[in-house]
Measured scan of single mutants.
Amino acid sequence: DHWHVHIDGERIRLDGASEEFIRTLEELIRRGTDARELKEIIKEYLR
Score class of each variant (00 low, 15 high):
I29S: 03
I12L: 08
H6R: 07
I41N: 01
E10L: 07
D15H: 11
A17K: 02
R13W: 15
L14M: 05
H4P: 03
Y45G: 02
R47W: 10
T24G: 08
T33L: 10
G16T: 07
D15A: 08
S18N: 08
A35S: 13
I29G: 01
E44F: 09
I12Q: 02
V5I: 14
T24L: 11
V5S: 02
R31Q: 11
R13M: 11
E20F: 13
L14R: 01
I41K: 09
D34K: 10
E44M: 13
G16V: 06
D15I: 11
T33H: 07
K43R: 14
E10N: 05
D8L: 04
D1E: 12
D1P: 13
A17I: 07
K39E: 06
I22Q: 05
A17E: 03
S18E: 05
T33A: 10
K39V: 08
S18Q: 05
W3I: 10
H2A: 12
H2F: 08
T33P: 02
L28N: 02
D1N: 15
I22F: 07
D15M: 11
R30E: 07
H2E: 12
I12F: 14
E44I: 08
E27G: 08
E26K: 14
I12C: 02
G16A: 03
G16E: 06
S18A: 09
I22K: 14
E19R: 13
A17P: 05
A17G: 05
I22G: 02
L28F: 08
E19M: 15
F21E: 01
E27D: 10
A35C: 06
H4G: 05
I7D: 01
I7P: 01
E26G: 07
D15V: 13
E20P: 06
I29R: 04
E20D: 09
E26D: 09
R47P: 05
D8P: 01
T24C: 08
L14E: 00
G9L: 03
R13A: 15
A35G: 09
I12S: 01
G9K: 04
E20K: 10
R36C: 07
L25S: 00
R47A: 13
R47Q: 14
R47F: 11
H2G: 05
D1C: 09
E26H: 11
E40K: 13
A17T: 05
I42L: 06
R30P: 00
I42V: 08
G9P: 02
E37R: 13
A17Q: 03
R31K: 11
E40Q: 13
L28K: 05
R11E: 15
W3E: 05
E37G: 05
E10S: 04
I12T: 02
G32H: 05
V5D: 02
R47K: 13
R23P: 00
E19Y: 14
H2Q: 13
L38D: 00
R31A: 11
L38S: 00
L14V: 14
I12H: 03
R30I: 08
R47T: 10
I29V: 08
F21R: 00
E10I: 05
E37K: 13
L46D: 02
R31V: 09
I22E: 01
R13V: 15
I41F: 13
R30G: 07
L14T: 02
R36K: 14
I42F: 02
D15S: 12
A35W: 08
T33C: 06
S18P: 12
E26N: 10
S18W: 03
I12V: 09
E19G: 10
V5L: 08
I29Q: 04
E40P: 01
E44G: 07
R31N: 10
I7G: 01
E37C: 06
E44H: 11
I22V: 10
L14F: 06
I22S: 02
D1R: 11
E20T: 13
R13E: 15
G9N: 07
R23A: 09
H6M: 15
W3V: 10
E20S: 13
A35Q: 06
E37H: 11
R11N: 15
H4E: 14
R31F: 09
L25E: 00
E10P: 01
L14D: 00
H6F: 07
L28W: 07
R30A: 12
L38Y: 01
T24I: 10
R30S: 10
K39Y: 15
E27S: 12
L14P: 01
E40R: 15
Y45S: 03
R31T: 08
E40D: 08
L46R: 04
R36A: 13
T33R: 05
A17L: 05
L38G: 00
D8Q: 07
K43F: 14
S18C: 02
L14Q: 00
I29H: 02
A17D: 03
A35E: 07
E20C: 05
I41C: 04
E26A: 11
G32T: 02
D34W: 04
E26C: 09
E27H: 10
E26Y: 14
S18H: 10
R36F: 11
D34A: 09
R47E: 09
E19P: 13
L25W: 04
D1K: 12
L38W: 02
I7F: 04
S18T: 12
K43G: 09
E10H: 09
E27K: 10
L28R: 04
E20I: 10
G32P: 02
L25G: 00
H6L: 14
E37D: 09
I41R: 10
E20V: 08
K39D: 04
G9D: 06
I29K: 03
G32S: 03
L28H: 06
R31L: 12
H2S: 14
K39W: 15
H2M: 09
W3M: 09
S18R: 05
R11A: 05
A35D: 05
G16F: 10
E10A: 04
H6C: 10
H2N: 14
F21H: 01
E20L: 12
I7H: 01
D8G: 08
A17M: 08
D1Q: 12
R23G: 04
T24Q: 13
E37T: 15
G16N: 11
L38H: 00
E19N: 11
I12R: 01
A17W: 04
G32V: 03
I29L: 09
K43N: 10
R11F: 15
D15F: 15
E37Q: 13
E27C: 09
D1M: 13
D1W: 05
I29D: 00
F21G: 00
V5T: 08
I12W: 12
L25A: 01
R36Y: 13
V5G: 05
R23H: 07
I12G: 01
K39C: 02
E10D: 07
H4S: 07
E19F: 14
K39A: 07
G32K: 05
Y45I: 03
E44Q: 12
K43M: 14
H6I: 15
G9H: 05
R47D: 02
G32I: 03
L38I: 12
L46M: 13
I12Y: 14
L38A: 01
F21T: 02
E20M: 13
E19W: 15
D15G: 06
G16W: 09
K39N: 06
D15Q: 10
T33S: 07
L14A: 03
E19C: 09
I42K: 00
L14W: 02
H2K: 10
G32A: 04
W3P: 12
G9C: 04
R36M: 12
W3D: 06
L25P: 00
R31Y: 07
W3R: 13
D8N: 09
L25D: 00
F21I: 05
E19K: 13
H6E: 15
R47S: 12
E10F: 09
D15C: 02
D8Y: 02
L46K: 06
L14K: 01
E20Q: 11
D34C: 09
G9V: 03
R13S: 15
T33I: 13
W3S: 08
L46T: 07
R23I: 07
E27L: 14
H4T: 08
E44C: 14
L14C: 01
I12P: 01
E19A: 15
T24K: 14
I42R: 00
K43C: 08
H2W: 08
I22H: 04
K43Y: 14
L28Y: 12
R47N: 10
A35H: 08
H2D: 11
I41E: 01
H2L: 06
L38P: 00
S18Y: 03
V5E: 02
E19H: 12
R13C: 11
K39H: 11
D34M: 11
A17N: 03
E27P: 01
H2P: 11
Y45A: 04
V5Y: 04
L25V: 10
D1G: 14
R36L: 10
E44K: 11
E40A: 14
I29T: 03
I22A: 04
R23N: 06
I42M: 03
E40C: 06
L46I: 11
H6S: 11
A35R: 05
R23C: 04
L28Q: 03
E19I: 14
Y45E: 03
I22M: 10
L14I: 14
I7Q: 01
L28M: 12
K43V: 11
K39Q: 08
D34S: 14
R23F: 07
R36W: 14
F21W: 06
H6P: 02
D34F: 06
E20N: 09
E37A: 13
A35I: 10
G9E: 05
I7V: 08
R36E: 11
A35P: 13
L46F: 14
H2I: 11
G9Y: 04
L25H: 00
T24H: 15
R23Q: 09
A17S: 05
L28D: 01
K39F: 14
D8K: 04
D8V: 03
R11W: 15
E10V: 06
Y45H: 05
G9S: 05
R47I: 12
A17C: 02
I7C: 02
K43I: 12
A35M: 08
V5P: 02
H2R: 10
E40W: 14
F21M: 05
L38Q: 00
L46Y: 14
R31S: 10
D15R: 13
D1L: 14
E27N: 10
K43T: 12
T33V: 13
E27V: 09
R47C: 06
Y45M: 04
E44S: 08
